[in-house]
Computed example of a mutant assay.
Amino acid sequence: MHAEQVSNSSHSAAFGMLNMLQFGDSQFPSGSFAFSGGLEALFNDKKIATPEQVYDFIAAQLSGRWNSLDRVALGRSFHNANQLDIVVEIDQEVDALTLSEGLRIGSCRNGAALLSMHARLGTPGSLEYRQKLHNHEATGHVAVIQGLVFRHCGMTLLEAQVAGAHGVCADLLGAAMRLGKLGHLHAQLIRQNLTSHIAELLEQPVSDIQQMHSYLPSTEIAAMRHEISDQRLFAN
């Protein structure tokens, strides 16, 4: 391989990783700060009270929802990023599989905010898909939007999945801290311990023909109860 080819290859790899760091960072304005994923209701019900229980909750979200549904949707959207009609079908399937209205609306609002930011940044495909949301042709679930825009940002599929999984952790840990249930040190310890869990999940390949599914009844019920709660800092 010539030196120029090596340089181009390294540039491409670095480009994708740098975009992963930028767009997977909690500081990126994706709108996810407004959602707790059912965590607020579980705190209010005293079902979760310790850092260990916060870890268990996030690990369950990664295994029971993200890995089996959101990750699959992200991968399908990533592979079909240039075929927006197929992306719409994936979006609609995720919508049908998200039982709780609060979680469904939260995912769509998060996805719409992410898409809007990428449309303003000029990410290919984002403006066209945003129009589909405005026309009510698509729902805009965040995992689907991640697959679409991350592909056009030069990430590999693995980098896109890492950014998605990290986003789940960052959002839920951020919610726990804003609810006053965690300090920064405990949050970092939990995130550090979740790294091996995420790595194990990512070692298991997923395919475009794999069925999407999730099973987190306690989270779904908590999110539904949160919809009628008088104590609400977060939208879900």
Results as ranks from 00 to 15, higher is better:
2 H>S: 14
6 V>Q: 12
9 S>R: 14
15 F>G: 04
17 M>T: 11
20 M>H: 15
22 Q>G: 00
25 D>P: 05
26 S>F: 14
28 F>G: 08
29 P>G: 01
32 S>I: 01
33 F>H: 09
59 A>N: 09
59 A>Q: 14
63 S>K: 14
75 G>I: 07
78 F>E: 09
83 Q>C: 01
85 D>V: 07
85 D>T: 11
90 I>W: 10
91 D>A: 00
92 Q>P: 02
93 E>A: 00
98 T>L: 02
99 L>A: 10
102 G>A: 13
104 R>L: 14
106 G>E: 13
117 M>C: 05
125 G>R: 04
126 S>M: 04
128 E>M: 03
130 R>Y: 15
135 N>T: 03
136 H>R: 07
138 A>M: 05
139 T>R: 08
143 A>M: 02
144 V>D: 08
147 G>E: 08
154 G>R: 05
155 M>R: 04
157 L>H: 10
161 Q>F: 04
168 V>L: 14
171 D>P: 00
173 L>W: 11
174 G>D: 04
182 L>R: 07
184 H>A: 09
189 L>T: 04
190 I>Y: 04
199 A>C: 00
204 Q>M: 01
207 S>M: 01
209 I>R: 04
211 Q>L: 02
211 Q>R: 05
212 M>A: 03
214 S>K: 03
215 Y>G: 00
219 T>N: 07
221 I>C: 02
226 H>A: 00
227 E>M: 11
227 E>T: 03
233 L>G: 02
234 F>A: 06
